[in-house]
Design a protein around this nucleic acid. Structure first.
Length: 321
RNA sequence: GGCGCCAUAGCCAAGUGGUAAGGCAAAGGUCUGCAACACCUCUAUCACCAGUUCAAAUCUGGUUGGCGCCU
């Protein structure tokens, strides 16, 4: 039964830890294809700020879900999940191993455990109405509504977290069920894949230093010009894509809200915060295999050997390397 | 050497007799259709010593350190 399930490798970690390079080396060793689990790299024209892999870095390894949308298109987990599942199916059909790489933990969770989102069709009108209510009567009011409909969710979601309160309300209205119950059920699911979930990590201070350095590099490589170009094309801050790190800060500068130095400072800070949140997320995921770089003396070759060992142990790959 | 000013958490900073605001950073956390989003939690006895007082970060004296001016 276990053997019926297709193989899947997840290789993730906080931003700037070095996922990209390692994933490509791994793919080359085992005949893998990479699926990007990244909410920003899906957009065309957002290369520098999203630290997108370059063609030469790919070294011939197939990459999926990169550059598939224009920055004004909507993207979200459900869509990601649908695309990623298709990719996985095709990669399996080719006899290759899919490697899910990228830092968006929620996306990884969605495909790894095949979480069910399909029960509702997002009702724009109702959502708008709730947003209006939140604005006019305050977040507490919405939270009260949720308290009546789904007390468990109300207890779990802070009233100030309007976005999540709205979603819970919306779910209840659409399905007549409580999202808290739904979530609980989904949580019990086991993965449809034979998988290994690696989280690459580094000492906090080194990670932060890397982030700072990488932002400087982005500037040298022309992040400013990239954002100018996007702005000229008419992309603006209401779009999800332009809320990505590196874009919102530079747009702030272009709109005269900050100096460039200030924008860079904020970008570094926000990226560090992001990395921290990513780690919090991975810490609470079950089945994670932590790969601390310092335990391997920062030697990618050694890390790779370790990954291969685990993969064989778990019978995810049997090709002798 | 003299005169003046200042000394509150890692940083910025309120408080001028009644038992330490706030912001930032750091740290921890939540997350099941916007997730590089949204949201939550959280850190001090006020440079040091002595005194006045029922009560001092707040008043007095001294010590140390910093800043400015003068000789």
């Amino acid at each position: 039964m276990d053997e019926d399930r297709g193989p899947l490798i997840v290789l993730t970690g906080p931003t700037a830890v070095g996922k990209t390079e390692l994933s490509i080396r791994l793919a080359k060793r085992i005949g893998g294809e990479i699926i990007s689990a990244d909410s920003m790299q899906v957009y065309r024209g957002m290369d520098i700020g999203s630290a997108k892999v370059t063609l030469s870095e790919m070294r011939g390894v197939p990459h999926h879900l990169i550059d598939i949308l224009e920055p004004d298109e909507e993207f979200h987990v459900v869509r990601f999940q649908e695309y990623a599942k298709n990719c996985i199916r095709e990669i399996h059909a080719r006899g290759n191993i899919p490697i899910l790489t990228g830092g968006t933990g929620f996306y990884i969770q969605a495909v790894l455990y095949d979480i069910d989102f399909t029960e509702t069709r997002a009702d724009q009108d109702y959502r708008k109405e709730l947003e209006r209510l939140a604005a006019s009567r305050g977040p507490e009011y919405l939270h009260q509504m949720l308290q009546k409909a789904d007390p468990e969710s109300a207890d779990a979601i802070h009233a100030n977290n309007v976005k999540r309160v709205i979603r819970a309300l919306e779910f209840y209205r659409e399905t007549g069920e409580k999202i808290s119950a739904h979530n609980e059920a989904e949580r019990q699911k086991k993965s449809p894949y034979r998988f290994a979930y690696f989280v690459l990590n580094d000492e906090r201070s080194r990670l932060y230093a890397n982030i700072d350095r990488r932002v400087d590099q982005m500037m040298e490589r022309g992040l400013l010009q990239e954002v100018v170009r996007l702005k000229e094309k008419g992309y603006h801050r209401d779009m999800v894509s332009m809320q990505g790190l590196g874009y919102k800060e530079i747009l702030g500068y272009l709109d005269g809200e900050t100096t460039l130095d200030e924008a860079i400072r904020i970008l570094k800070r926000d990226t560090r915060h992001f990395a921290k949140r990513q780690l919090t997320w991975f810490r609470r995921e079950k089945d994670v295999i932590w790969v601390d770089k310092d335990r391997f003396a920062y030697d990618d070759g050694k890390i790779l050997e370790y990954l291969l060992e685990v993969l064989q142990e778990k019978k995810i790959t049997d090709r002798r390397i």
